[in-house]
Deep mutational scan, measured.
Amino acid sequence: NRRVIAMPSVRKWAREKGVDIRLVQGTGKNGRVLKEDIDAFLAG
């Protein structure tokens, strides 16, 4: 159960899209999950 680094707005975006943010690979600094990462995860 790893800790995910993400801005609150990104966490909210993931929740709205029904995405478990822990499954998303972050591409930002220090592995931070970005809004673009959520979109890419949804795109496959």
Rank of each mutant, 00 (worst) to 15 (best):
A40P: 02
G28A: 04
M7Q: 14
R32S: 09
W13S: 06
G44H: 14
R3C: 15
K12H: 07
G31L: 04
D20W: 04
P8I: 10
F41S: 04
R22K: 11
S9N: 11
V4C: 06
K35E: 05
G26S: 04
P8G: 09
R22I: 06
I21M: 05
V19M: 03
I38A: 01
A6L: 04
G28Q: 01
R22W: 10
A6F: 04
D37A: 00
V19L: 05
E16G: 06
G31T: 03
I38C: 03
K35W: 07
V24G: 00
F41G: 02
V33R: 01
S9K: 11
R11Y: 12
E16K: 14
G26P: 08
V33P: 00
L34P: 00
K29M: 12
R11F: 13
R22Q: 09
K12C: 14
R3H: 12
E16A: 14
R32T: 07
R15Q: 13
D37V: 02
T27Y: 03
A40G: 08
T27L: 03
L23Y: 11
G31S: 05
G18D: 07
R11S: 04
W13F: 15
I21L: 09
G31D: 05
N1F: 08
P8S: 11
D39I: 11
G31V: 01
W13R: 10
V10G: 02
G44F: 15
D37S: 02
G28I: 01
L34D: 04
L42I: 14
K35A: 06
L34S: 07
A43R: 14
E16S: 12
I5G: 04
R15C: 15
V24A: 03
E36S: 14
K29V: 13
I21G: 01
V24K: 01
R3I: 13
R3L: 13
A6D: 03
N1C: 15
A43C: 13
D20T: 04
V10S: 03
E16T: 11
V10D: 03
R2T: 11
R15N: 10
F41Q: 04
A14W: 04
A14T: 01
K17L: 14
G28P: 00
R32Q: 12
D20F: 04
A40L: 12
K35L: 09
M7W: 15
A40V: 10
V33E: 01
N1P: 14
G18R: 07
W13V: 09
R15D: 11
V33K: 03
R3F: 10
Q25S: 12
A40K: 13
G18L: 06
I38F: 00
D37H: 02
D39R: 08
R3M: 09
